[in-house]
Design a binder for these strands. Structure first.
Lengths: 226, 226
DNA sequence: GATGTCATTATGTATATACATATTAATTCC
DNA sequence: GGAATTAATATGTATATACATAATGACATC
């Protein structure tokens, strides 16, 4: 018991220091929790808390009995916060403006009978993102009574319709003529696209594709200590 | 104490159930940990573990004294695993092929004097991603003795050079003539781009831009229970 | 030698207790 | 009434202990 590390953050910091200093290079096994607790002069639960958090970040790999080791290929594990568009725009100090472009019913391969909504989000008047959304009427019948004329369907859905899970895909696609027109760019221009599908258990809630105006990017960090 | 939930996962599941069932709608405050523990017939630490994990997922918002409430705008918090390209290709059951295109020294605004490497990654022979990388020679002098002819610089760096943090940006950009040629597409084609910068404390390690061949996308899930 | 059993081991988790800390609410003081 | 102080409260964390569980490795068995 050389030093006294008595918070799990301090222990995490010391472990990270040893990893960064190459005392424990990639693939290197760590002492077990009991020994580390003895060395750091703290309880095993505190060591466990520190190492578990590092494992969740992808820095360590842990297996029962096998022990803990420094990740060999520290698959960069980044946490993406995907805000609603209004918040994203307002966070830039700009004013958000929402325009409903169309609102019809139709059929969608995943959603079935669905409300089809297209809308444009602007930031300080400039086109920001084009929204193409389907809302399943089997899952969300209340959507029919919502105009979605002044507020984004996303915010209404988040506040009123539960979902259990979903998936998001990011890609780059060329702008079609109509998309280019709304986003004030040229057909074929590279657009950053997000496709999101959300479910409530096994029932589809909404499928949405967002076309972001040229220049858009999303950013995240890895290994940042708060 | 009606039911007996004695694992933190069971408690997390029950809390999620109540959120999804709209018993606790967005913005709704939860009972405090002591009361929940009494209701669930478990220790407060167990409730804490369950709620803390949900807060990390962005589902709950917690503040001392103020208590716990269901997140009003459940900012979709997705975890992105960014594998090394070879693993990404091999995970698709394809063979990875790496070709060094150029290797010179030059100056880079962030890295200073740096090794500049361009390389092409192929999957089953088809262009997959074009890599444009700068490695700071002040931080990584050993890089000069590495040919990077048959293996990606990324894997060598991960195994031999420590880093503490970094940032990643995703965007869509039109292919320049040379990029289009390597990726066997046409100039102006929309390319999915990732820009990554990594640091070891305050020293830049490497700056890399990856141009992915058309059709590439990254996918993640939200709210998935493992 | 291959296979199955069992003890060992390191992590995973639950519990009771105690104290720390942030934040709000109430109260006192000027 | 407004500012400063204080009390109350919910979460945050540390500790010792106990048992659960997965995975390994050794041993015994066929």
């Amino acid at each position: 018991m050389t030093d006294q590390f008595n918070t799990w953050q301090a222990i995490q910091g010391e472990v990270l220091r040893r990893i960064h200093a190459r005392d424990w290079p990639p693939g290197h096994p760590l002492p077990n929790e009991v020994d580390l607790a003895a060395e750091f002069g703290c309880a095993r639960a505190t060591v466990n808390r520190a190492l578990r958090a590092l494992a969740e970040d992808g820095i360590l790999e842990r297996r029962r009995k096998a022990g803990t080791r420094v990740a060999l290929h520290p698959v960069s594990r980044a946490t993406l916060d995907i805000p609603i568009i209004r918040q994203e725009i307002e966070a830039q100090g700009k004013t958000h403006d929402y325009t409903l472009l169309s609102r019809v019913t139709g059929d969608h391969p995943i959603c079935g009978k669905a409300l089809h909504i297209t809308a444009l989000h602007r930031a300080d008047g400039a086109p920001f993102a084009l929204e193409d959304r389907w809302i399943s009427l089997a899952t969300v019948p209340q959507a029919t009574s919502q105009p979605f004329a002044t507020h984004s369907a996303n915010e209404w859905l988040l506040a009123h319709v539960p979902y259990t899970h979903g998936d998001i895909t990011f890609s780059a696609q060329p702008a079609k003529a109509s998309e280019a027109e709304h986003l004030k760019t040229t057909p074929g221009a590279p657009l950053f696209i997000t496709d999101r599908t959300t479910w409530d258990h096994d029932r589809p809630v909404t499928v949405v594709r967002l076309f972001y105006a040229p220049g858009y990017s999303i950013r995240t960090t890895i290994g940042e200590r708060p």
